[in-house]
């Protein structure tokens, strides 16, 4: 009997249990339990201003979301914002990676500078760009006027057609460095012989990029796309700092909707249901991309 127990829980098992227990405990309490609890909340009509009555409503919250036109508006805003952010981030990251993968004096300083946006708190990122976009004192107006691209100052963030793009710009500025770092690592792994072979075969710079760099970059590129999508789809800080969903509903995204629904209207039931929908969407999206990737690479 004792031998059997010993067999099932030998020294390795006992040590591992002790080493892993704290993490599992923390994650269960702060991640797993809230996720399950959130599901329970999403099945009830919980409004914080009415704490005692919290009837079970089943899937009603979910049904209500899909019938809510604000939700579909937010979906379209989020989609536009995410696509723009991800695409611009990726393109810029490739360019930056190409630059920093070269060896030249000052390259190490530039690599250090690259970390500045990454380390900048998103709140500061928001206020910084808001200040740059400022309608009267901002840098953007002054700069464009000086160059002659505009004739008079404009309220940039107040323009519904531009708001999302301007917020996306701030997001790109902060996110691009990590993406570039990932791509540089992938580039460094490309064997030098491939470039030498391509040179011997007579390929010029552009051909070498298209036929050697780009194919080798694909895993890194896919990783960046998945990661940036998952991050961008749930951006919130910039929206709170810069526009609060406005002007009008120009920057009314899903995470903003969830915030408003939950912490302004205090409808926790629907808020939780929305969070669930967004989480599942992110999850399925990345799962699909990874599956698709797995087949292609």
């Amino acid at each position: 009997m004792l031998a059997r127990l010993n067999r099932k829980f030998g020294y390795d098992e006992r040590s591992a249990a002790i080493l892993v227990f704290p993490v599992v405990a923390v994650l269960l309490v702060v991640a797993a339990y809230p996720i399950l609890y959130s599901f329970w909340v999403s099945l009830h009509d919980i409004v914080l201003t009415r704490p005692l009555r919290r009837p079970f409503v089943g899937g009603d919250n979910y049904l209500r979301i899909f019938g809510d036109e604000r939700f579909w508006l937010a979906v379209s805003r989020t989609t536009v914002y995410t696509v723009v952010t991800v695409v611009v981030t990726t393109v810029l990251a490739v360019l930056v990676a190409l630059l920093l993968n070269e060896t030249f004096p000052g390259q190490r300083i530039l690599s250090a500078v690259l970390l500045v946006p990454w380390a900048t708190p998103s709140v500061v990122n928001g206020l910084m760009w808001k200040w740059i976009y400022d309608p009267t004192y901002g840098l953007l107006n002054a700069l464009l006027l000086k160059v002659g691209l505009i004739e008079r100052y404009r309220a940039w963030l107040g323009d519904p057609d531009l708001t999302l793009m301007l917020i996306a710009n701030a997001a790109v500025w902060k996110q691009m460095p990590l993406a570039a770092l990932l791509l540089i690592v992938t580039m460094k792994a490309i064997p030098d012989d491939l470039y030498r072979a391509a040179k011997v075969d007579g390929a010029n710079v552009l051909q070498r990029f298209v036929h050697v760099t780009l194919p080798a970059l694909r895993p890194g590129l896919m990783l960046v796309l998945v990661y940036e999508t998952m991050i961008s789809i749930r951006h919130f800080d910039l929206f709170l700092i810069m526009t609060q969903g406005g002007p009008g509903d120009a920057s009314f995204t899903l995470s903003w909707l969830i915030y408003v629904e939950t912490f302004r209207s205090l409808r926790f039931g629907t808020g939780a249901a929305m969070s669930y929908v967004l989480a599942m969407a992110t999850f399925l999206l990345s799962w699909a991309v990874i599956r698709w990737l797995g087949k292609r690479i």
Partner: peptide, 15 residues
Amino acid sequence: TRVVPDIALIVPLFL
């Protein structure tokens, strides 16, 4: 727990 977006955690964590 790593792939769950924080947005899904905010409401329940608050509660």
